[in-house]
C-alpha cells in the first residue's frame, strides 16, 4: 500500500513536505488510522492524534485524499493510492498531522456552550417534554472534531471572525434547548456579518460530518429565529 503523508517538524526549520511510504498492509476491512498506526511502526517520528479509534472522541480528524474525516472510521478500501493524508486545512500545524485547535475552541467557547438558567436549581433535574428533548437530536451529537469547520471556505477566508459550522451548530443546540434562558443574548451574539452571515450555505460541512449532522440546517434555523425576532 502506498501512502503520501504530510510531514512538518517546526523545530527542524525545514518547510513542510509530502513523504511517500510503501508498506505491506492488508486494507480489507481496515481504516486509515490502522494504516497510520502501522506506519508509525516503520517511522516512529510520524506524529498524529488518536484516542478512542472508533469515531467517538473526534481527535483524529485529518484530510484524506482531499476530504476531511476521522481517520478511524474512514475505510481504506476504495481510496485512490497513494493515499494522501494531510492535517485539517487552515489550522496551524503543530507537527505532521497534528493541528493547533485553539482558534476552533475559541469560537466554541464564544458561543457559551452551556445552559444558562438563572432559576433556582430544582431538587432533581430540569425536566423537558419528550418533544422539547427531540429538538436537540442532530445537535448534541457533535464531537468537535473540526472536520466541518476546516472544510468551510468561509472559515478559510475569515478564521478569526466567522464562527464556523461546528460553533454555530453548538450555538443552535443551546438556542433550541427549552431549559436555556439566554436565547436573546445568544441570538444577539451571532447576528453579525462575520460570525453568522459568512455562511452561504454551500454545505461542505454537511458533506464531511463524520456523525452525519447538518450544521447548515442548524444555521438556517438560527436565521429563521432571527427573522422571527426582528419582525
Amino acid at each position: 500500500m502506498r501512502l503520501r503523508i504530510y510531514r512538518f517538524d517546526p523545530e527542524s526549520g525545514a518547510p513542510p513536505r509530502m513523504q511517500d511510504y510503501e508498506i505491506d498492509f492488508d486494507a480489507r476491512g481496515r481504516k486509515v488510522l490502522d494504516a497510520l498506526i502501522a506506519l508509525k511502526e516503520v517511522d516512529e517520528t510520524l506524529a498524529f492524534r488518536r484516542s478512542c479509534r472508533e469515531g467517538v472522541c473526534g481527535s483524529d480528524g485529518v484530510n484524506v485524499n482531499g476530504v476531511n474525516g476521522l481517520a478511524c472510521i474512514t475505510a481504506l478500501e476504495g481510496l485512490r493510492e497513494p493515499i494522501e493524508v494531510r492535517p485539517l486545512p487552515r489550522l496551524p500545524v503543530v507537527r505532521d498531522l497534528i493541528v493547533d485547535m485553539d482558534q476552533f475552541y475559541r469560537h466554541y467557547r464564544a458561543i457559551k456552550p452551556y445552559l444558562i438558567n438563572l432559576d433556582p436549581e430544582p431538587e432533581n433535574e430540569r425536566l423537558q417534554s419528550p418533544a422539547d428533548r427531540a429538538e436537540l437530536d442532530g445537535l448534541y451529537e457533535c464531537i468537535l472534531c473540526a472536520c466541518c469547520t476546516t472544510s468551510c471556505p468561509s472559515f478559510w477566508w475569515n478564521p478569526q471572525r466567522f464562527l464556523g459550522p461546528a460553533a454555530l451548530l453548538q450555538s443552535y443546540r443551546f438556542i433550541a434547548d427549552t431549559r436555556d434562558q439566554a436565547t436573546d443574548e445568544r441570538l444577539d451574539y451571532v447576528e453579525d456579518p462575520y460570525r453568522l452571515f459568512r455562511c452561504h450555505g454551500i454545505m461542505n460541512c454537511v458533506e464531511v460530518c463524520p456523525k452525519g449532522l447538518n450544521p447548515t440546517a442548524a444555521i438556517g434555523k438560527i436565521k429563521s429565529l432571527l427573522v422571527k425576532r426582528a419582525l
Binding site: R161, Y189, E191, D192, P193, F197
Partner: peptide, 15 residues
C-alpha cells in the same frame, strides 16, 4: 479592539 456584533447583517440577508 475588535468590534463586531450584535444586530447587524440580518436586514441585507433578508433583502
Amino acid at each position: 479592539r475588535t468590534v463586531g456584533g450584535a444586530r447587524r447583517g440580518l436586514g441585507l440577508w433578508l433583502l
